[in-house]
Each structure stands twice: as structure tokens, then as C-alpha cells.
Design a binder for these strands. Structure first.
Length: 313
DNA sequence: GCCATATGTTGAC
DNA sequence: TCAACCTATGGCT
């Protein structure tokens, strides 16, 4: 699943390519036919993200609410207005970059309509300039504005929104909780948008013991943690990838055989090879980039947690 | 082809 | 604390 940064990019992308346009909405797979019919032929007014939730607002006061879950993914295609758009969703390889849409980027108007749906397309949005397909989402529903508010009410502060007072809200949400901070970071009521990669990486960056009870974090340490999440997730929005390391910790960039797109990115010197993008995520059994101690992994509430037992105490 | 795995959430016990 | 759910992929055989 894309973490919050990907959903934010998705919202921006929907606004860019479909904002103000009349959309045909369908469910080629059939499982969302009723919900699609409620939106079909209406105009997209706005697209917004809160945590990992995507809300597409239509001109009839209804909202398409999508949560990609673990497997969901959007793919896009169309004319030149889709040139910079990319497919966002389900994990492929660790640190993979988004793949570019199949739209032509020649700036002509030769877009001839969407292709026949491939696979289980839950919903297809199509306008005169292009299309977007959703597969495998855990939530895909048409809801009212009131229901939209109810979804938002369940969510904690979003580091990518970072309103005034959110750092304090986050710190307060940790107070009195005896669960490990690593578990609390995955709780969307406490902080919205953090997933398994960011939680492991951010705890490492702050050198925090993942097993520390939330209530044991001093207020100023909780606020520092919030600020780091804000920083690293904003980088994720810019990069379209989760990169938490800095060049100082990259090794062997460009030495191994890599796909052309990745080689180009490496040449620019701004992106690490995918095996250099993280400090601890999926690096169990490998030496810590900072101290050389073997990185550990353990199950925590059904998800794998990665950490350096030496740096994070 | 088969199987494990994946950046997630919900609801039953 | 679990299992269920949704889909695609990479690494095996």
C-alpha cells in the first residue's frame, strides 16, 4: 500500500487531469456498479487526501471514497495532460519508483479513448482527455458529505497537512498509551498516513526504541518525532518514493545491473538505488548503516517491524 | 504453475 | 489475537 505521501500525490494528480471535467464512471469488474452509477456523468470538483484516504468530490454533493489497502492501485492513461502522471499503488519491489502512465507525451491530441479494461477494474473514471483505473482497493464507495466527515473524524492529524497545533495533538495522542510507540505510529487515529515503511524508518532516524511505551516519550521527543515525519513524508511527496537515507549512507550506487529508468535516476545523483533508500526497512540480517550491528525484525500486531537494537535504545 | 509476500483495515472471538 | 478480504508479482519449481 502506498503510504500517505502516495495518496497525496494521487489527489493532486486527479485534480490536475480531471479537475472541472465531466467524468464517465463505470465498474468494468461489476462490484461497484451501483456506486459508479451515482457518479456517472458528473463533474469532478476537487480531490483531497487525509492520511491514506482519498476523496473525490463531485458536483452532485457525492464523494468517491477510496482506500487502497494493501493491494490497491490506480493506473492512468490519456493525452498530453497525462504526461507527468504516474501509476500509484500496490508494492512491487522495495523502493520502486512509480511507473509512468501510458499516455503519449508528444503534446498532440491523438487520444482515442481508454483501452479495454485489463483484469479486475473496480472503477474506471474517463473523461475526454484520459482515464484512470482502480484495482484491488479495500474501500471504494460513494458517500455523502456527512459520511465524508465521519471518516475524517476517525483520523488523527496528517503530517502532510501539518496544521498549527498538530505536533501537540500528536504528542497528546501518545500520552497515557502503554502500547509500543511502533504500534502507535501505525494507528491512524493517532497519526494519519504513516505505514510500515515510514514507522520503521522514522523511529530509526530519531534513534527511538520501537518497543518504548508511548507514554514514555517526553513531550519534546514526541514533537521532534512529529517534525521528522513531516519532513520525510514531504520528501516522499516530492520524490514519489520513500527515501529516508542521505547520500552519505549510499553504497554501490550504479554498480549492479539496474533498469534503465533507475540508472537514469542514479546518474542524476539525487536518487539512491532502491537497496539504499532505507535504514532498516526490509534490512533484517544486514548490518546497520550507522553502527554495523545486525538489523532485527519481529512481528508486531501482525506487521513486520525492523530496527537496529544498538542505535535504537 | 505454485506459493509466499506486499507500503492495510475491519470485525469476530 | 486472529482471520478475512482484495490483487499482482517475483522467486521458486
Amino acid at each position: 500500500m502506498p503510504e500517505g505521501h502516495s495518496v497525496r500525490r494521487l489527489a493532486r494528480q486527479f485534480g490536475d487531469v480531471f479537475g472541472g471535467r465531466r467524468l464517465s464512471v463505470s465498474s468494468p469488474q461489476g462490484r461497484f456498479s451501483a456506486g459508479a452509477a451515482l457518479l456517472d456523468g458528473h463533474t469532478l470538483l476537487a480531490a483531497e487526501a487525509h492520511g491514506k484516504h482519498l476523496f473525490l468530490h463531485f458536483d452532485n454533493a457525492l464523494v468517491l471514497h477510496v482506500h487502497l489497502g494493501l493491494y490497491g492501485a490506480w493506473s492512468f492513461g490519456g493525452d498530453s495532460t497525462f504526461a507527468g502522471s504516474s501509476s500509484i499503488g500496490a508494492p512491487r519491489r522495495v523502493g520502486e519508483q512509480e511507473t509512468f502512465a501510458e499516455g503519449n507525451d508528444d503534446g498532440d491530441a491523438s487520444y482515442a479513448g481508454p483501452p479495454a479494461p485489463v483484469g479486475a477494474v473496480r472503477v474506471r473514471l474517463a473523461a475526454t482527455n484520459g482515464w484512470a483505473d482502480l484495482r484491488g482497493a479495500t474501500t471504494c464507495e460513494t458517500i455523502t458529505l456527512a459520511e465524508t466527515d465521519m471518516v475524517r473524524a476517525r483520523l488523527g492529524p496528517d503530517p502532510l497537512v501539518n496544521r498549527r497545533g498538530d505536533a501537540g495533538r500528536f504528542a497528546a495522542n501518545l500520552q497515557g498509551r502503554k502500547a509500543p510507540v511502533a504500534a502507535l505510529l501505525m494507528d491512524q487515529k493517532i497519526i494519519a498516513g504513516v505505514g510500515n515503511v515510514y514507522r520503521a524508518e522514522v523511529l530509526f532516524r530519531r534513534r527511538l526504541d520501537p518497543w518504548l511505551p508511548g507514554s514514555n516519550l517526553a513531550d519534546n521527543e514526541a514533537r521532534k518525532l512529529w517534525r521528522d515525519v513531516v519532513s520525510v513524508m514531504n520528501d516522499g511527496v516530492s520524490d514519489g518514493r520513500i527515501i529516508t537515507t542521505t547520500p552519505k549512507y549510499w553504497t554501490g550506487n550504479g554498480k549492479a545491473a539496474r533498469p534503465a529508468a533507475e540508472t537514469a535516476a542514479l546518474k542524476s545523483g539525487t536518487f539512491p538505488a532502491r537497496d539504499n533508500a532505507h535504514f532498516v526497512y526490509k534490512r533484517d540480517g544486514l548490518p546497520c548503516r550507522v553502527c554495523g550491528t545486525t538489523v532485527l525484525a519481529a512481528e508486531l500486531v501482525g506487521r513486520k517491524l525492523y530496527w537496529c537494537p544498538s542505535c535504537q535504545t
